[in-house]
Design a binder for these strands. Sequence first.
DNA 1: TACTTTCAACTATCCACAGA
DNA 2: TCTGTGGATAGTTGAAAGTA
Length: 251
Amino acid sequence: MARQTGIIKLKGTIGDISFYKSSDGHLARIKGGPDANRIANDPAFQRTRENGSEFGRAGKGGKVIRNAIRVLLQNAKDKKVVSRLTKTLVAITKTDPVNERGARTIQDGDMGLLSNFEFNTNGKLGATLFAPFDVAFDRVTGDASLSLAPFAPTIRIAAPAGATHFKIVTGAAELDFPNEGSVFESDETAILPYDAADTAAIDLTVTVTPNSVLPVIQVVGVEFYQEVNGQMYPLKNGAYNALMVATVDTV
DNA sequence: TACTTTCAACTATCCACAGA
DNA sequence: TCTGTGGATAGTTGAAAGTA
């Protein structure tokens, strides 16, 4: 049994050697574990395969969502949004009361858990936009709307340093998880000055399939800009832009 | 008993390396 | 020294075998 006696304790795996801390001290040994073939075929790993199946479904579901809102997500995301979204979708999958273990789905689970999901932890909408806003989705017409009464930007929006302008965006996505497809439309305000003067009332509407029977989510976001010599530049490549799930509507 | 590894899906980011 | 390429990694869940 190999032991680590140096000052620097390692944790993790380098090559075929694993380093970890146990009650016997810091150890180093050849990595082990069951092989891929066993996990794929051995009846003892049935539970493991069921987990893998549901986890895989959540991962694919995350891709459907990210692909759907890609045009907005590109401007407001952090490095770990994929894993955070997967985590949420796994939790949703577990709330599915219909299907048996290993076959549970996102759309049969409680998709409400996706409400208020923030796509950028570096710029959360909940900590950025303090102007009250209303969202509404009409399943018959397929219209998703966002409205804000006039507000003073410097009071109602916590903008990162350097921002001179901003934009409010929204989008609706109709999600078809089994077929890995989606319908998406987005709308946005003009680029507005970040100052103390009240904005005009904001009303944005986007439309997805009327009378849809699929789950629909609506996202709301804020994007920041910096004006330099009359040109608008995205502030720090959108590091502080916010995007959040505002509505989750299922049949 | 405590701990690791493995698998499932996905992708931005990081790193090493080769070649110019 | 710089650039492009390709592979590894992180991060998420849960189950069980294997080892000291």
